[in-house]
């Protein structure tokens, strides 16, 4: 049963056709990635799911209900941490819940402590490093009550070392909570390392050129990144992208 299903969605801005006949679905408890080159309209897809934009054609359903134009039905973690600089870490984490109405302070404190940010709980965002801020942003999204979290290239602004650490941290926390995640990235390795399924997008106007079930068992660790089967999968995706580029 899919939790989120997008069927045949198209969107154009004037002359500029961004998405053409895009379909994908996410099941409950699944970690799904959308992988596409820069400028393939990934952010537009998120804005459509988030209700900031409405599609020209097609349906977007969450738990069988249409969420077209409905804001607040998903929980969101953006590319930049987007923490409010006048709020402490605790109050930033609570923001997602606050917008929806119910606040669970104890759970927030527990999650912050689990994320290794105990000593920063009453600090302000500017006192944290980039990776820490992204952790806070993720906890904020995780604590929001919506059934699915959208992550919009959350690690693309981090340096290589921090990114790997964050990916492992995300896998860890995902394993213990099993939230449903839709993850957008342009990094093939990242998509393979993290997700259960990958939708590979074409260039504009974007549509799904291939859907791939990631064959690796969990829990995964970083040795996987150098194994032959991992590199094999990476090659498959790479060529799929290249083929679509030529067409």
């Amino acid at each position: 049963m899919s939790l989120l299903s997008i069927e045949n969605v198209s969107k154009r801005f004037g002359e500029n056709e961004v998405i053409r006949g895009l379909s994908l679905d996410v099941k409950a408890g699944e970690f799904v990635s959308i992988l596409g080159p820069s400028g393939s309209g990934k952010s537009t897809i998120f804005n459509l799911i988030g209700g900031l934009l409405t599609p020209d054609e097609g349906t977007i359903r969450l738990q069988k209900e249409s969420i077209i134009g409905k804001r607040g039905s998903i929980s969101y973690m953006p590319q930049t941490p987007s923490l409010l600089p006048w709020r402490t870490i605790l109050h930033n984490v609570l923001l997602g819940q606050e917008l929806q109405g119910n606040i669970n302070r104890e759970k927030a404190i527990e999650m912050i402590e689990k994320a290794g940010l105990k000593e920063y709980i009453h600090s302000y965002p500017h006192e944290l490093s980039g990776g820490m801020k992204q952790r806070v942003a993720f906890i904020r999204a995780l604590l929001s009550p919506q059934p699915i979290i959208l992550l919009d290239e959350p690690f693309s602004a981090l340096d290589e070392w921090t990114r790997l650490g964050m990916q492992k941290w995300l896998l860890d926390i995902w394993d213990s909570h099993r939230p449903t995640i839709l993850f957008v990235t342009h990094n093939i390795e990242e998509a393979l390392f993290l997700s259960d399924r990958i939708f590979v997008l074409s260039h504009r106007p974007s549509h799904v050129i291939s859907e791939l079930k990631v064959p690796f068992s969990r829990p995964r660790n970083e040795e996987l990144l150098l194994e032959n089967r991992f590199l094999e999968s990476k090659r498959t995706i790479h060529f799929a992208l290249k083929r679509s580029n030529r067409e």
Partner: peptide, 27 residues
């Protein structure tokens, strides 16, 4: 804009956007 975008995606209504984001930011 990034803060506004986050608030909108997370479902903030006009009033929440103003009281929780725009007003404190403009202090």
């Amino acid at each position: 804009n990034e803060l506004k975008h986050y608030m909108m995606m997370a479902g903030a209504n006009r009033r929440q956007l103003f009281w929780k984001l725009e007003l404190p930011f403009s202090l």
